[in-house]
């Protein structure tokens, strides 16, 4: 099958070279590449960046965008931004994220709708086990509050967009340019070259120094875009670090087994001509 193999290799090469060109061609710009700490087979989330990004999400994004698949306790689970917290000068870890005082304090900032034991609707302070409260009671309310455009849920947004984190970051930073003449920017829309269709209903959100980072980092627009994207990358794939470290073990095991089986195979077949 050598003829076939060669032909296939050639065809594959053509497709590999041509496919990105075909994808990139057309209406909107491919996002800028950014070097993320979570890139690559050994990449990990930068806990500080995820913490800052969570602050940006809370103070800027959360007014319009929910993260409905996340619970507050997720912040303190293994791989999460508050997995390890400093309590009285000591670094502490908690097996149960419910016991994590930082997570509990974050939860208490939220007000959660509930029903008490005599059936009356009440509002109570949040607990780590609660979901993050959603900004709207329903989709219609979300649309009405935003000029007809429903702000998407951000729980898995990084996985739900081509180019993932790079796209989100570029989009957040992509408001600076003037719209070219052939793009008709109607009221309620903004020009953003990274958005498919190049028109986005979300106004630019990030402004220099609009928040004060808990860790004292300077809140430049790019810093905030990087951080909130980092947070969303974690939110979309919270077990990424466990996945990669288990992957390494599995790979080492499989390569070892492959070598042993190959030697065994050579041994078995050494007695027959083949």
């Amino acid at each position: 099958m050598k003829t076939v193999s060669r032909l296939l290799a050639a065809a594959a090469a053509v497709m590999l070279v041509a496919a990105p060109a075909a994808l990139g061609a057309g209406k909107y710009r491919s996002p800028e590449q950014h070097a993320w700490s979570f890139d690559g087979p050994f990449g990990e989330f930068d806990r500080q960046a995820v913490q800052r990004g969570f602050q940006v999400y809370q103070e800027v994004c959360a007014a319009c965008h929910g993260i409905k698949h996340l619970s507050i306790r997720h912040l303190g689970q293994p791989g999460g931004p508050f997995e390890e917290v400093e309590i009285n000068g000591q670094l502490m870890r908690y097996d149960n994220p419910n016991d994590n005082p930082v997570v509990a304090a974050i939860a208490a900032q939220y007000t959660v709708a509930d029903i008490d034991d005599i059936g009356e609707p009440i509002e109570r302070p949040g607990r780590p086990a609660d979901r993050f409260p959603y900004p709207y009671a329903n989709e219609a309310q979300g649309r009405a509050a935003n000029g007809g455009a429903y702000p998407p849920d951000l729980s898995v947004i990084v996985k739900a967009r081509h180019y993932g984190a790079n796209y989100i970051r570029s989009l957040l930073l992509g408001y600076d340019e003037e719209a070219p003449e052939d793009v008709d920017v109607r009221p309620g829309n903004y020009y953003n070259p990274y958005m498919p269709g190049m028109l986005i209903a979300m106004p630019p959100q990030l402004q220099e120094g609009m928040i004060e980072y808990a860790d004292g980092t300077e809140a430049t627009v790019e810093q905030m875009a990087n951080d909130v994207t980092h947070f969303l990358a974690w939110a979309a794939d919270p077990h990424m670090e466990a996945r990669k470290s288990m992957g390494m073990m599995v790979m080492i095991y499989l390569f070892g087994l492959a070598i042993l089986l190959y030697l065994s195979y050579r041994q078995v077949w050494s007695r027959v001509k083949h």
Partner: peptide
């Protein structure tokens, strides 16, 4: 004649090792 069970034979132990390991 070479179709004997490769696990058989007198000199088994050393050769068997790799199969047992795998």
């Amino acid at each position: 004649t070479d179709e004997k069970n490769p696990n058989g034979g007198g000199e088994a132990t050393r050769r068997d090792f790799i199969h047992i390991a795998a």
